[in-house]
């Protein structure tokens, strides 16, 4: 290999050596084009960050460029309003996530590992719901949660989130439960493990990677959800972040700085989450491709 390379190099006449081959030119062009595309793609975020530091006078004169001094007080001003919504979102997302994971790991476990009458029927009954889009259920769902007196409560978000989230989760978990080696269960049963112990000590640890993927997928969707929570919750006390920011938008049409600061603050938690879960995030986005 080394020899043939050396031979090839020695055979090259100076005229054959070009300073940059067309191939590397192409690569440079691709890099430049990709960075331009990325810049355009993230331009709204860059714009929001620049606008978030403006006083209303600065916005009036130079709306879309960086202006000095930076008004950091915009951030404290909007944080004072939205921190409460953020906590509500953390609570709603947290409760929904725990609920979704609990019901879907239990169901996924017995569907994937046991035979019992009606198993396939129940499984297909659940999976068929993947074909029901949110637009069909939104209006009747609101009627339902009004009957349950869940309007203006977190439960009006949590129950629909769990019922919507469990379907795809069960679909994924069943497959992973089926993939766990039988030997693990045989060994546990030889030691006299109960179904709970099998679930808790063997099944759950074995499917941990896919639980992470499911969790990341749902957290992103619920954290960023706007329309359903804005229908269900009108009391600011219980409002989650996106409808909270939406209300904040209505109140701050003239004062863009704090508004944009609110948008930036609202976007940060998921970015921080991403820093810790980038692998799960990429896998989650991949698997989300066949979720409707």
């Amino acid at each position: 290999m080394v020899i043939s390379n050396a031979t090839a190099a020695s055979l090259k006449t100076p005229t054959q050596v070009v300073p940059s081959s067309p191939r590397s030119n192409l690569k440079w062009a691709l890099h430049v084009a990709l960075w331009i595309l990325a810049g355009l793609e993230f331009y709204p975020m860059i714009l929001a960050i620049m606008m978030s530091f403006k006083s209303s006078t600065q916005y009036y004169i130079h709306p879309f460029s960086l202006t000095f001094p930076l008004h950091l007080s915009n951030y404290s001003q909007s944080f004072a309003v939205i921190w409460h919504y953020m906590l509500n979102s953390v609570a709603v997302v947290g409760i929904s996530l725990i609920g979704t994971l609990a019901v879907s790991t239990l169901a996924g476990f017995v569907i994937g590992r046991y035979r019992f009458p009606g198993r396939d029927l129940l499984y297909y009954m659940l999976i068929a719901l993947m074909m029901v889009p949110g637009v069909l259920t939104m209006v009747p769902m609101f009627v339902l949660i009004s009957h349950f007196h869940m309007v203006d409560t977190w439960w009006g978000l949590v129950f629909p989130y769990i019922a919507g989230g469990e379907i795809f989760s069960i679909f994924l978990l069943r497959q992973f439960m089926m993939g766990i080696p039988q030997e693990l269960f045989d060994a546990a049963q030889a030691d006299g493990a109960s179904i709970w112990q099998e679930f808790w000590h063997i099944a759950l640890p074995s499917v941990r990677p896919i639980i992470g993927v499911i969790a990341v997928n749902h957290v992103i969707g619920w954290w960023n959800d706007l329309i359903w929570p804005s229908i269900v919750i009108s009391n600011p006390k219980w409002m989650t972040l996106m409808p909270g920011l939406y209300n904040f938008t209505g109140q701050n049409q003239t004062d863009v700085g704090p508004l944009m600061a609110g948008y930036v603050l609202g976007s940060i938690p998921l970015v921080i989450l991403f820093l810790f879960t980038s692998r799960l995030f990429v896998e989650g986005m991949n698997s989300g491709a066949f979720k409707l």
Binding site: A102, V103, S104, L106, A107, F109, V110, I111, Y114, F116, L122, M125, L126, L129, V132, L136, T137, V139, P140, M141, V143, L144, F159, P160, I162, A163, G164, E166, I167, I170, I195, F199
Partner: peptide, 27 residues
């Protein structure tokens, strides 16, 4: 016990997925 494991998922699906979908047709 096995049906107990299935119960929460199925109950939630019936109440918060199937019922709204069907009542939407009726509504």
């Amino acid at each position: 016990l096995i049906y107990g494991f299935m119960f929460p998922a199925v109950a939630l699906a019936l109440i918060f997925d199937y019922y709204p979908a069907l009542s939407g047709l009726y509504l």
